[in-house]
Amino acid sequence: MTASPPTIRHPKITAPQFTTPQLSKERALSARRRARRTALIGWSFILPNFAGFALFTLIPVVACFFIAFTQWDAYNPPVLVGVNNFTRLLGDSNFWISVRNTAYYAFGHIPLTLAIALGLALLLNRALRGIGIFRTALFFPYLTSLVAVAIVFNLLFAPDNGPINQILNSVGIANPPRWTASTEWAMPTVIITSVWRDMGYYMILFLAGLQTIPREYYEAAEVDGANAWQRFRNITLPSLRPTTYFVLILLTISSFKVFDLIQVMTEGGPGRATLVLSQLIYRDGIVQGDYGYASAMSLALFVIVLSFTIVQFKLSERGNK
């Protein structure tokens, strides 16, 4: 990530000393043509990707800003309704419950995943026999299909005859939590599952960050008599700042738009205990065909994610000074 791109050396063009106006004009023209050609070549390289991005992401995102102010069933032409969708949003208990649940999920998922991923990376950042096996094993959950993860964890967490509660029973816990069947425990269950799945991925990012810290720092610190905690606190953490920032941004965005895991595991239930914003957007938009209102909710989600990202950006900037 920090590697600089290879520098391209252009052959130096030495301009002849004397030129007629006619010639210089031609040369200017050919230079412009060359520049245009270079630009076109550049464009042609990014075009396949950009065309797809524009068609399936950029245009819909821009359209969302318009659709949010209309009532639209996707079949008949949209009808402008002003800020109606937004005033409706403010009085919608489903919206507020899903905002609260999304925040609950994010504030559980982000710090836990960050801490565990960092811990695992520190643990596996050493020369050990068979370290590759451990790293691969921890990355494995991330490669597993999310639907499969959700179904298997549902079975593990089954309240009456699931293996987890049977183990808890056998160690003397008489009334173990009823996990996804209980309104209090449903969200923690989802968070545990998602942390388990994501930790390997972020661990790899931290591992990459750890590899870039020069060994000399630690050697110098050891000579100065710093203990393990002091070395971690004063060398590892500050050196990992760019990686941590990157991980934090990725985690924040993925947490706020969580959908698939919850849709498969609890469908937002029991009741509305795990109903999150993306799910509500999907329900109102795709399922019920109320695209205007769903777009207004998407904008609300966009504003939430944007403001968190800006705060993180500012904090990181201040930390860098």
């Binding site: 009823r178 069947a181 209980s182 309104t183 937002g268 239930g269 029991p270 009741g271 329900r283 019920q288």
Partner: peptide, 20 residues
Amino acid sequence: TAAIVQIGTDEHQLIMAGQT
């Protein structure tokens, strides 16, 4: 219909799972 079915589903889960 769609909105009432959704509310019915929410409350059904709570009643059947003994959460209310």
